[in-house]
Simulated scan of single mutants.
Amino acid sequence: MDMLRRMKIEYGLSDLKWIEVDQTFQSENGKKRIRIWKDKQLLQWHVKWRDEISKQSGILLDRMIRTKDGEPFFICDKGWATIHDEVEEIFPATGKENEWGKLLGTSLTYGLKQSDECQRFKKKQDIPLKAVKQTLDQLKALDPMAKLVLERSYFEASRRCRKVLQLRERMQTKRSPILSPEIKLTNAREVFHNLFWVCGADQPIQGYEPIRNFLEDWYNKNGEISTRKVLASINDYFPLKTDEGVSLLAELVTPNELQRTVSQFENQEKETSVIMDEFFNSWETTRKLVILLSRWIEEDGEKVVAR
């Protein structure tokens, strides 16, 4: 059966017209997006995630529109189909730190609870730094100057890995939240001056990596003062000035930049100058964020990072 006709039946809609076939369509109730899911467990996780974060935070998410029978999806010949409101207005960042903090804090609180309940999603394992160095040594065609810089960065990365171990050894809790990888500034939309978050359809990640990526992006775009406001707002909904904050700090200290850069050279993804510029910028941003977060935590407690 034609998908538009099927959606008319399932949702009681009319006057449907494709904007992008099998992606977005226009209805009498506005623009909608259709997503096709191949993994029912992943779909069910996303349904619950959206419902819980929206309920607990009061923030709008691109939740699954219910069918006439009250179901969040319907079965089609391609898998399971969901329908979502499609919003295009971009939500601002600066001046909206409280809203973003509420979203992140609520996501972390619920994500930590999920880590106790859901065993399907395993924590992402760090790739051993020695394996990264081995790959770097095998890049024979790499620009000599770029290779020299990365080889020297390896020693600093080793020091950072030792610091990560020290941070993790002092933590009493070993739990990691299960989070959507789509916690991104680019996924923020605005509905009547309110934040509307697009959650995507990717596999969730167990660990603080999505928060690290978000904070790096936020810091680069909005600076230190705004970043501190976001951290303070997160702390209103999630106890960052505890072992959980130290866990986030350990994630920031982990030298992901070196691993990502070597992988980009291995796969020849971009020009050498572009990759190295991104590496320098990311390395410096991470350094500044580690100092910022450690000092912010120390404001009300003991030191967490040795200078």
Rank of each mutant, 00 (worst) to 15 (best):
R33H: 00
K133R: 12
E86W: 00
Q119R: 01
V164K: 09
I291F: 15
V246D: 04
W49G: 13
M1P: 02
E52V: 10
I211Q: 03
P210L: 02
C161N: 14
L240M: 04
N187P: 02
M3I: 03
R307D: 02
E97F: 14
K303W: 01
F155A: 06
L179I: 05
N235A: 09
C161M: 13
K140M: 00
K174S: 04
W18S: 01
I205M: 09
E99C: 10
W37G: 14
T186M: 01
N194K: 08
R66M: 10
K68V: 06
C118R: 06
V21Q: 12
Q56H: 03
E251K: 06
W49K: 13
I9V: 06
P239L: 08
F280L: 08
Q268K: 11
R228G: 10
T272M: 06
V198P: 10
R162L: 03
C161S: 12
L167K: 04
L293H: 13
R5I: 00
Q114L: 07
C161K: 11
E209R: 06
V305M: 05
C199Y: 13
E151S: 12
G245C: 08
S57C: 00
V132M: 07
T24K: 05
S282P: 08
G223V: 00
R212D: 08
D217L: 13
L61N: 02
R287E: 13
W100F: 07
E271H: 06
V246W: 08
A157Q: 13
I83H: 13
R287H: 14
E209N: 05
L179F: 09
T286R: 15
M3T: 01
L108K: 04
N267R: 02
Q134R: 15
L104D: 00
I211H: 04
E298L: 05
V191R: 05
F25S: 04
E298A: 07
E182Y: 01
V132P: 03
V149C: 10
A201T: 10
C161P: 05
L136P: 09
N281C: 09
E190R: 11
F192K: 04
Q44V: 04
P181C: 03
V305W: 09
P239W: 08
C118G: 00
L258A: 08
L185Y: 03
T227M: 12
Q26W: 07
S57I: 00
R6A: 10
R63Q: 07
W80M: 15
E52S: 06
I291P: 07
D137H: 10
F25Y: 04
N235D: 10
F265L: 02
H193F: 09
L231K: 12
Q203H: 10
T272Y: 06
L240V: 01
E216Y: 15
A157N: 13
Y219I: 09
R170I: 01
F121Y: 09
A250Y: 07
L129H: 15
K102F: 01
P239H: 07
I291Q: 11
G207K: 02
S226H: 05
D126C: 14
W37D: 15
L150G: 11
Q203M: 07
D143Q: 12
I9F: 03
L179Q: 09
G58K: 03
S107I: 05
A201K: 12
E156N: 07
I291W: 14
C199F: 13
C118I: 05
N281G: 04
K270D: 00
V230M: 06
E284V: 06
E266T: 05
D15R: 03
M276A: 10
A157V: 09
